[in-house]
Write a protein that binds this DNA or RNA. Structure first.
Length: 842
DNA sequence: GCAAGGTC
């Protein structure tokens, strides 16, 4: 009798590694049917029985939390309802079909062993996996399914650790999972309520906020606050004058030596000149002490994600998001190890020499690698093993195939790796103490002893020229010059991205994986811009928001809020506090904060009022409102919209570089009387252009029409713009379910554009008229057309099948079916219907 | 259209 054991890790790569380690490399691997995961299988022993093991994985969370559909309508839901609205779990990534996939792999299995990452999130995913596989697995003889569920606890992906975890299986911890449930629910309710309320409030009022959403979040808002705090320090900075006395001494050979004054800066001009007099009166100095101390710059610790992001931002000028994107690609192509890790120490059995040897052939740093290899590697500095993944290291030589950012990130990873195996950079610091009358001065110098790792990090090197003057104790020096230098204190610079990462890490805002996401978010929302040197400068929107929160409830932006919540959650995780009690208490606290914020939003608004232009002042009259027939104003700044200052309604319209918004004669929508508009795409013949009604685009009138859809998705039976009236045929592009619709503004350059895909058919360029007939082509089902040519002669028939239309029709992106091509080519009318009809539309 | 957290 053989039992089946299904084991599930948090990501495909870990499933691989765990299976290899547990099976001593004997496992065989196959791809999972969801194309994201893999399964490794092997035979062995489990609980004293012969067992067949299947090791597979999720891809992070299986589920995500959201409100039911009806609460996601911003118009119909009051944001305060979001504190009591039901919530449910939905698949985190529907395309992966993770629930079905896991169930299919676990079908009929006897045991489940959970190998998810050993943190709260991992524990939470354990129960998501249990929910996914339970219905598919075999019922245990003793009844309780959880008896068949085990949890592996491991702190490193090494043979020793993984095998030990397998021998000491435990059970998943519900409390830790509940702590994550609480966080998810709080983040959702708090984030969405604040975001919806303030978005609607401010966007209904101002025209130049330049952001489509005014979001709030427990991580993004404190992140923004760090940037605004520095901005405030800069704005509020008052330069203060100060004075320093610059002195130069000289020895008998008249060698000049600049000295540092022990008192440094003086903030009183009178006092400074008094000291200057004393120094001049003394006229010279005596060397009272010469001391030399050894000092060192420490070699770096093994590289983890946060450090890579910091360096890439500060030295390579890459955003954390770009860096991680590049690093992922280097990883999947085998150049570097897994780039998402918190660990900064190499595993005990890590092949440092082998990894170093791979780099000896490189044109740029090969010589350094060879030298380190020859001289013997230095024991790396101790770091932290967080039990996730080994530090980021090169996995093979880069060669010349890498270019651009990939090459630069790879070079850094290699240099960092080499540097960790080199000696510290050591140098002597010499301090010469002088007394000039009662005043103390000093000469400082550095002399390199051993460049150590700075050979691999040339930018960190110690300048060899910084030596102290060669003087002896007791030696007398003459005063060559002494002058007062007037200076001013200067403000700090804007926060650099790398400083921000450090602050976020220190305050527990986000995780190594989410830090780049939060930084991206505050950029996309137009709260900050990235300026030279990757310094983050808040926009007036960012400043107004943070100042507004500070005026109403400063806790909303403080980094300590997140930290306090984390301590509460840890109590749940440890079983020291009741999940429901803690969650409900926190929820009630935030609900009160929300209500208070809503009541006092005018205090925030008073800041917006002086910085932004109200909608009534902004925009130019553009097209008529269907409700009051007055002209609406076009507000062009993000999000572009038409605003009716009579009805106080706003309607989003498309905007951006890929097209321009036009009025469409005096045509109106038969459903609501709004003036129709026309979006003219950029890109000549192949551009996507379409007519639309601004009201219908915001309130789709027919089933199957989505927000933002134009008339080419509209099923109106008689309006000339609808796809019912203007549709030629189902789109001819492979697997496209769209309809090719006559572009109403394409007079002379007749075009049919697909309402789903980029396919465009152009036909009879230069013809005077193009009319769709009611009749359909017998062969392919497309609508027949009547084309009036320049010379008033006419073509009547099917654009796609008629041989005489062939040279007049350009398919561009669209493709004819094989049958239509054949008919065109042979010049004969074939038999049977190809794909055609008018499809299902929208 | 909204959060933050996993990972692809």
């Amino acid at each position: 009798m053989t039992v089946t054991v299904v084991m599930v890790a948090e990501k495909p790569m870990l499933a691989d590694s765990i299976a290899k380690l547990l099976s001593d490399g004997k496992a065989t691997k196959r791809k999972g049917w969801n194309n994201a995961c893999s399964v490794s299988e092997y035979s062995g022993q489990f609980m004293g029985e012969r067992a067949f093991f299947k090791v597979t994985s999720t891809c992070g969370h299986v589920m995500s939390v959201d409100f039911p559909q009806k609460y996601n309508n911003w118009e119909k839901t009051d944001p305060s309802e979001l504190y009591s609205a039901p919530i449910h779990k939905i698949e985190a990534n529907p395309k992966m079909k993770m629930n079905d996939y896991l169930a299919s792999e676990a079908k009929g299995a006897d045991y489940l062993v959970l190998w998810l990452d050993c943190d709260k999130e991992g524990e939470n995913i354990c129960f998501e996996v249990v929910d996914a596989v339970q219905p598919a697995m075999r019922k245990p003889a003793n009844g309780d399914f959880m008896n068949a569920v085990y949890r592996a606890h491991f702190s490193a992906i090494t043979e020793k650790d993984i095998k030990a975890a397998m021998r000491n299986l435990g059970r998943p911890n519900k409390n830790e999972a509940l702590a994550v449930d609480a966080r998810q629910e709080l983040d959702l309710r708090v984030g969405c309520s604040f975001t919806r309320f303030q978005t609607k409030y401010f966007q209904g009022k101002y025209g130049d906020l330049d952001s489509s959403v005014i979001s709030f979040g427990p991580c993004q808002t404190p992140t923004l606050a760090f940037c605004v705090t520095r901005h405030d320090q800069i704005i509020q900075f008052k330069p203060e004058p100060y004075w320093v006395i610059q002195t130069t001494f000289e020895d008998a050979e008249k060698t000049a030596m600049r000295a540092e004054w022990a008192r440094g800066r003086l903030f009183d001009r009178e006092v400074a000149s008094m000291f200057l007099d004393r120094i001049k009166k003394a006229g010279g100095a005596t060397v009272v002490d010469v001391s030399t101390k050894k000092s060192a710059k420490e070699r770096p610790q093994a590289l983890n994600t946060v450090e890579l992001m910091r360096i890439a931002s500060a030295s390579l000028g890459l955003s954390p998001a770009t860096t991680m994107h590049v690093a992922e690609s280097l990883y999947t192509h085998g150049y570097i190890s897994y780039p998402r890790t918190e660990t900064t120490s190499y595993p005990a059995n890590f092949d440092l020499r082998g990894t170093l040897a791979q780099q000896t052939g490189d044109k740029v740093w090969g010589a350094i690698a060879s030298k380190v290899l020859a001289e013997g590697i230095n024991k790396p500095r101790g770091g932290d093993d967080k039990g996730d993944h080994p530090p980021i290291t090169p996995m093979r030589a880069g060669g010349s195939v890498l270019g651009g950012d990939s090459a630069r990130v790879y070079e850094y990873v290699v240099r960092h790796f080499i540097a960790t195996l080199m000696r510290n950079c050591t140098y002597d610091v010499t301090t010469v103490k002088l007394m000039c009358g009662e005043e103390e001065f000093s000469f400082l110098g550095r002399q390199l002893i051993d460049p150590g790792f700075t050979v691999a990090f040339p930018w960190a090197g110690v300048d060899e020229d910084e030596r102290a003057p060669n003087v002896k104790k007791g030696q007398k020096l003459g005063l060559k010059s002494a002058v007062i230098d007037a200076r001013e204190t200067s403000p700090p610079g804007y926060l650099t991205e790398s400083e921000l990462i450090t602050l976020m890490e220190k305050h527990g805002i986000g995780t190594d994986a989410s830090i780049p996401v939060h930084i991206n978010t505050i950029c996309q929302r137009n709260y900050v811009t990235v300026e030279t040197g990757r310094r983050l400068v808040p926009t007036r929107l960012g400043v107004c928001l943070i100042h507004g929160y500070l005026a109403v409830d400063r806790e909303l932006v403080l980094p300590t809020m997140r930290a306090e919540l984390e301590t509460q959650l840890t109590l749940i995780a440890k079983g020291e506090a009741d999940y429901l009690a803690v969650k409900n208490h926190a929820l009630e606290q935030f609900r009160r904060k929300f209500v208070f914020f809503v009541q006092n939003v005018t205090r925030v608004d008073s800041l917006f009022g002086v910085s932004f232009t109200t909608l009534t002042e902004a925009g130019k009259p553009f097209s008529r409102c269907g409700k009051c027939r007055r002209f609406m104003k076009l507000v062009e700044s993000r999000p572009a919209r038409l605003y009716c200052s009579n009805c106080h309604d706003a309607y989003p319209v498309p905007s951006g570089r890929d097209g321009s918004l036009k009025t469409f004669g005096d045509k109106q929508c038969p459903l609501d009387g709004f003036d129709l508009l026309y979006w003219q795409g950029v890109g000549g013949k192949l551009a996507r252009s379409y007519a639309f009604c601004p009201f219908c685009a915001a309130n789709p009138p027919f089933e199957g029409m989505k927000n933002g859809d134009g008339c080419d998705h509209c099923a109106h039976p008689s309006c000339p713009q609808s796809y019912i009236s203007s549709g030629l045929c189902g789109c001819t592009a492979p697997a496209c379910e769209g309809v090719l619709v006559l572009d109403p503004q394409s007079t002379g350059k007749w075009r049919f554009t697909c309402n789903r895909c980029p396919a465009v058919i152009t036909a009879f360029e230069g013809a005077k008229k193009m009319k769709l007939k009611e009749s359909e082509c017998e062969e392919c089902g497309a609508r027949e057309v009547t084309v009036t040519l320049k010379d008033e002669s006419k073509f009547v028939g099917c654009l796609l099948c008629a041989p005489e239309a062939k040279d007049q029709v350009n398919l561009n992106h669209a493709h004819l079916t094989a049958e239509q091509q054949q008919r065109q080519a042979s010049g004969q009318r074939g038999r049977g219907r190809g794909r055609g009809g008018r499809g299902r539309g929208g």
